[in-house]
Amino acid sequence: MNIKRKVEVVVISDVHLGTYGCHAKQLLTYLESINPKTLILNGDIIDIWQFSKRYFPKSHLKVIKKIMDFAAQGVDVVYITGNHDEMLRKFTDTKIGNISIVNKLVMEIDNKKAWFFHGDVFDASIQNAKWIAKLGGYGYDLLILINRLVNWALVNMGKEKFSLSKKIKNSVKQAVKYISDFEDVASDLAIEKGYDYVVCGHIHQPKMLIKKNKNGETTYLNSGDWVENFTALEYQFKRWKLYSYKDDKRTPFFADSELKEMDFKELVAAITILNPDDIKASR
């Protein structure tokens, strides 16, 4: 029998529900394996930019239902808005039960300050950054679709899969520079503000590293994504860990029986039924 892991803080970002690139089944399997105290959704969870009634499969609805179940069970769920779900920013500081919507978050963890935000705010301040931001839109989704077809062919030929988008990012100097600049700007600001940790998403590059400058140091953390990397950040036993679904060797968890048995209409009904008394705004 699988025992769910207790985790103090879990951070996921860049899920892009509603797009072909989203790997909702793998994410759901991961969510079923943990028992978090706080779940931080650090932007681009639902891809409102590309939302279409034609494509929002059952597995994507199950992820939303699972997150709502966490909240119903007492888990603090913090939804930090990103650029692909920026429409939710008009609901900033709204609280629905145990789910709160914010633009950024400062949390004290074991006497250390952690600063959470998605990271798209840097796109306007880093030179030559706009073109790579567009990679997260329709072009990126198309690239993922092509990549799936290529990988299907490679697997059938007995060869290993590979990531087209990663190859492009790693081979284009501007992309590499953008990622480096992003990490430097985030870390320099965190040091200036006196934060021990700065936790971002946005660039789909999972990372944990100590950044230093003449004014001090901070730990830069990026939760990666659930399009290519299948990663999350976990805080437990006074330390951060970068979780990788691809490297997880434990017996897989599967969606609970209730979620398995629900049809599409039941899932939609379960997600959309809200109690007006639970909705609070602190603005």
Rank of each mutant, 00 (worst) to 15 (best):
Y220P: 01
N213Q: 09
K246Y: 14
M208S: 02
T231R: 04
I210M: 12
K212W: 05
L242K: 04
R239D: 10
I210E: 12
G216L: 08
L209M: 12
N229D: 10
T231E: 02
V227N: 00
T219A: 06
S223P: 04
L221G: 00
E217Y: 14
N213L: 11
E228P: 04
Y220I: 05
F230E: 05
K241Q: 15
K211W: 10
D225H: 06
F237Y: 15
T218S: 08
N229S: 12
K214A: 14
Y245A: 08
S223C: 11
S223M: 06
K214I: 14
G216T: 05
N229K: 10
K211Y: 13
E217L: 11
E228C: 08
Q236N: 14
S244G: 00
S223Y: 06
E234V: 07
E217C: 12
L233M: 03
I210K: 15
K246G: 03
L209Y: 02
Y245N: 09
N213V: 11
P206M: 06
F230C: 10
W240K: 06
L242A: 02
W240Q: 06
S223R: 02
M208I: 15
L233Y: 05
L242Q: 08
L242S: 04
L233F: 03
F230P: 00
V227M: 04
V227K: 01
K241G: 09
E234P: 08
K246W: 13
S223A: 15
M208P: 00
L221T: 00
L242G: 02
Y243L: 05
E234Y: 12
P206C: 08
Q236H: 15
E228A: 10
A232C: 05
E234S: 08
V227Y: 01
E234K: 10
G224S: 05
V227L: 09
V227W: 00
P206Q: 03
K212Y: 10
G224Y: 04
L221Q: 01
